[in-house]
Design a protein around this nucleic acid. Structure first.
Lengths: 204, 204
DNA sequence: GAGTGTAGGCGTATGCCGTACACCTAACAA
DNA sequence: TTGTTAGGTGTACGGCATACGCCTACACTC
């Protein structure tokens, strides 16, 4: 009966993501998204309860691009899980600024749940069940969440490593020496190397 | 010559932590901390450049309570690392609200660096060096950061698990079934189980 | 084509926030 | 006693999320 909606959740989320990509996460506000869409601030509240829901829409938009189709049905399960993890990591890497949002809203995102479902499927086919399957999923989830944050908020190639290499060597002998090696370790080697450790642990 | 300081960084950080423990992280503001100390808001800026530095002080205060003395020199290295990880986890668990702060400021906290130095010491004694040592430390760091967040922001025992168990079973068969098991998995089993996977991977 | 109910869109206002700036003054050195 | 310096404060600004009430475009009925 009444006036039709002029916006979709998807369009709202895209506008917010555009703001984030252009101005950073700090630039995201109800005002900035409204301006991006050419409407008033309060109009957004017809589509979203509060800012938190807007953030959740952004997370859903990004995680929604992850292909959660179980990969390579015949392949060994550690490889299949690695593929799923890489897909998730790549999707987030396309919009690194949203990392803090994914952490905060992961569990309320349907797309995130679909990813977990897919990982569980692979684990189940590999013979995991009961407690072991719960621990395996949560362990993977923990590593992936932490490692992605590490990668984007404090990368090995960044200033943090330089700062560490300049610490007093007598108080931090191992840190200063390791920091020199660290600069030569690529982000892929770091992320996938850690994941490989976890997967090896799962297989033992 | 001039008037002496009436505050120490430690006292400032304690006041902020008291606010957080009482009113939650959302209750932390320059105003609330000033009130806690019985001084004006702007007085805090004589001791701290901005809010971010105040947060860093809080992280340092909490992480500073972690005993980073290398544990049990004769014990197997996986056990020694587990002890260090447990100490860190316990310190954070005493003030769960600060989890987001530790993630944001970890790399600028001296206490955090001392912990990493200690872990590196154990890894070095265990024979790790070069790339492998870098990957081992970053892998552990990634897991610890992610798992601690998972534990406090989305615990297995919490509403998230209940919500998952109520998802449509046809779209999420594994998730709904696993959620039933998950309620019986303790936080310790989850956290230490995942850590054990990683340590086993390191040992292979 | 006219009338009407509904919900979309907007302007305003409130109460937070961090913090820049100018000022007053306590406390020490001389 | 006096002067210097830094500690402490009050005010003000711009930005934030969002509650509330108004106006009106629209799709429907008649």
């Amino acid at each position: 009966m009444p006036r039709p909606r002029s916006l979709s959740h998807a369009r709202l989320a895209s506008a917010a993501l555009a703001v984030i990509d252009r101005d950073g996460l700090a630039g995201l506000s109800m005002r900035s998204v409204a301006k991006e869409l050419g409407m008033s601030t309060m109009a957004l509240y017809r589509y979203v309860d509060d800012r938190e829901e807007l953030e959740r829409l952004v997370v859903d938009l990004v995680l929604g691009t992850v292909d959660t189709e179980p990969p390579a049905p015949g392949a060994p399960w550690p490889e299949r899980i690695e593929v799923l993890v890489r897909r998730l990591r790549d999707a987030v890497a396309a919009h690194p600024q949203i990392v803090p949002l994914t952490v905060a809203h992961r569990h309320r995102s349907l797309a995130g749940l679909r990813w977990s479902e897919s990982v569980l499927g692979v684990l189940t086919e590999a013979g995991f069940d009961g407690d072991r399957r719960v621990v395996a999923l949560r362990g993977l989830l923990g590593y992936v969440i932490g490692a992605i944050q590490l990668e984007h908020l404090g990368p090995l190639s960044g200033e943090g490593t330089v700062a560490i290499s300049e610490l007093p060597p007598d108080a931090f002998p191992h840190m200063t020496e390791t920091a020199r090696h660290a600069r030569k370790v690529s982000a892929d080697r770091e992320f996938l190397g850690g994941l490989a450790l976890l997967l090896r642990g799962l297989g033992a």
